[in-house]
């Protein structure tokens, strides 16, 4: 088991009182899975993604990533985990504008302390994987949206992460580019990459093998299906053994 969340909760302290973004989240993801987290805005899916990506810590519960308890890690160790085990893809690509495609992809390797020559070789290999081997020296503003997102995918993959976290990866793209990106993700999954897709679009989520539905900070449904088949074995969780608790 790659990821295990137990009773995860997250409360934000704001001026107007506490806001409970997540509560009682139990979730496990196996190596090689392609899962989607779906929910409307405000459902807590971004908060959950941040916790899964070690960008923020839960206020309750435990998180094991590849057998390690994330809650006990120091700031420095969390940075290493993000560098080595997690690859992020964002809706707005988040490429650094003053770096070429190649340099953007090299960046995680720089933080990993990989020597320049190997860095370059691995970045080129990864860009070839997403079909951008002839766009190495291009700057982000010289690339189309779809190409920029492919650079971002290459950057996420270059350190061979255990899990790829994709946050609305097609959200800023036209239909055709979006479809291309999705096909790349599906292909990566076929090659064994664990992927967690966060989206608010149901049909996008249904390309994956598992759809976790969030509502108001809780898991409403966790549905598994065979790839390509209509949804089977819907298993509703969280409705029987949990009681609403006011903070």
């Amino acid at each position: 088991m790659l990821i295990r969340l137990h009773n995860i909760g997250k409360t934000y302290r704001t001026g107007g009182g506490d806001v409970q973004a997540l509560q009682g989240i139990d979730l496990s993801i196996d190596r090689g899975e392609f899962a989607a987290i779906i929910g409307q805005s405000g459902s807590g899916k971004t908060t959950l993604l941040d916790i899964l990506g070690c960008l923020s810590q839960p206020t309750e519960g435990d998180y094991w990533l590849d057998g390690r308890a994330v809650g006990s890690l120091s700031d420095r160790e969390l940075a290493v985990v993000r560098n080595q085990q997690i690859g992020f893809i964002f809706q707005i690509f988040h490429l650094l504008p003053r770096k070429s495609a190649l340099h953007n992809v090299e960046l995680p390797l720089q933080y990993a302390g990989i020597p320049a020559q190997e860095r370059r070789r691995r970045a080129i290999d990864t860009l070839r994987l997403v079909g951008l081997q002839d766009r190495l020296a291009h700057w982000p503003n010289q690339l189309s949206g779809g190409q920029q997102q492919r650079v971002a995918i290459a950057r996420a993959l270059v350190n061979r992460p255990a899990i790829l976290l994709a946050d609305e990866p097609t959200g800023s793209l036209d239909t055709r580019s979006g479809r291309e990106i999705l096909e790349i993700l599906v292909q990566l999954h076929r090659d064994g990459q664990t992927i967690l897709l966060v989206t608010h679009e149901r049909d996008l989520a249904e390309k994956s093998g598992r759809v976790v539905t969030l509502l108001d900070g809780r898991i409403l449904a966790d549905e598994r299906r065979e790839a390509g088949d209509p949804l089977t074995q819907p298993s509703l969780v969280g409705s029987t053994n949990r009681v609403e608790t006011a903070p």
Binding site: G53, L55, D75, R76, F88, L96, N159
Partner: peptide
């Protein structure tokens, strides 16, 4: 972004 892809505080 830099922190997300592995930059530490230092």
């Amino acid at each position: 972004l830099r922190k997300a892809i592995g930059a530490g505080r230092s």
